[in-house]
Nucleic acid binder design. Structure first.
Lengths: 225, 225
DNA sequence: TATATTTTATGATATTTGTCATGTTACATA
DNA sequence: TATGTAACATGACAAATATCATAAAATATA
């Protein structure tokens, strides 16, 4: 099992503010695991008892609506952490985490990391800043959900995926999401998502090969009405 | 000008974790002000340079969507604080604050309170916990926006207003929001909000007197489909 | 009090989105 | 390779919601 001290991924999250000693301790008690695409890491309503650090792969954080449909609240990517909110509040998880592709994750038990939260101001400040960032992102999404059309939200999501995960050598989005995933990200029916993608295709905004998607005209896509 | 040490309102927010000394210092540098209904306290995009504490009255925190419509992201009530996110992140405000009724607020300059954030673990932990709570609330709203109908969201909002602000002696909601406010809370057109309220009235779920609203059947209102 | 202005209300209609049905394609696996 | 299954696609229709128009009621202001 590799050590946190040598893990590049921690540079992307709050763990980078830990001292050498703290990191050694954290490393000693962490557990790593390999997660297969589709696997559930934790469920809404579960108590987490620690935080997860994403070493590889992508994961969707979803919440079940009262009507039984799942809504993607955000994506956790390489370097991201999951469960900070529960760590801080001591509450059960508000979200379910499902692997979108194969992943490697590490788990740090609550009691180990809570100690650092109390003792290391740099660490708690960094957690606080990231929470503030998450809050802003969530509020922005809220406004988009409330005020934008499904078409606009889908266009925006495609651009987000390209910006965040880049494209492969053929120009297709490097992250492959199912139509169903797109639908639960923008908050619509799967058929509607598919229909709008077809429309984008007809209008030359995107092209597809199987389930892969390539953005052909980012300018116009960002201006969809 | 009254002193923070004697202000009951601080018991409801993070300021209660400050020590006597810290509180005296904060009290000495704070400024109080009276805000009239409709007044703007700060605008999206402005840098805040401090935090606000709501002593009296209610305030809506809104964000302008790209299509030019305002969306209410949350309400700040007595005891609430505004601007913590900007305080923590150092960024400009993400939201606009508009008084819904006459208010009294206090402003604490950034440099004074940032010091406590660094020095007082109880304070920073409390801020962190509240930010975590805000994040959960925001994520929940996001899911509601994405997955529930306008009718469900409006019913939910009416219940929220009654639960949070109580009713007056005649049973009407103690907080009077305009139909326009309701529309920007649930994220719909004003006409749609009005229409649905009329429908609720016909169904006996609510009754109205002028702009005042009384919930007549909370059970059924919470089960609207 | 009279008048202007804003807020609330409702009809008519267009647009958006969801739902159900059905077919097609891609992909996994025996 | 054959075959089953899941993902993708599209038509037809229903429901939800937005938009525009207009009027009534409430409220502010002269």
């Amino acid at each position: 099992m590799s050590k946190c001290e040598q893990c590049i991924v921690r540079q992307f999250n709050s763990l980078k503010t830990l001292t050498k000693e703290e990191l050694v301790r954290v490393s000693a008690c962490k557990t790593s695991s390999v997660i297969k695409k589709g696997d559930i890491i934790f469920r809404e309503g579960e108590s987490l008892n620690g935080i997860y650090c994403v070493r590889e792969g992508v994961c969707k954080l979803t919440k079940l609506s009262d009507n039984g449909k799942e809504q993607v609240v955000k994506l956790a990517i390489k370097g991201g952490m999951m469960g900070q909110r529960s760590l801080v509040s001591g509450e059960i998880s508000n979200l379910t985490a499902v692997a979108i592709n194969d992943m490697q994750i590490c788990f740090i038990p609550r009691q180990e990391i809570v100690r650092d939260l109390q003792k290391n101001v740099n660490f708690s400040m960094d957690i606080l800043k990231r929470m503030a960032q998450d809050l802003k992102t969530s509020e922005d999404s809220l406004v988009n959900m409330a005020q934008k059309t499904v078409k606009q939200r889908l266009a925006q999501t495609l651009i987000y995926v390209q910006t965040t995960f880049d494209i492969d050598q053929d120009g297709y989005l490097a992250l492959n999401l199912s139509r169903d995933d797109y639908a639960s990200i923008v908050g619509t029916a799967t058929e509607s998502a598919i229909r709008i993608l077809s429309q984008f295709k007809k209008e030359g905004l995107i092209s597809t090969k199987g389930k892969q998607i390539k953005i052909e005209n980012l300018q116009d896509l960002s201006r969809v009405e």
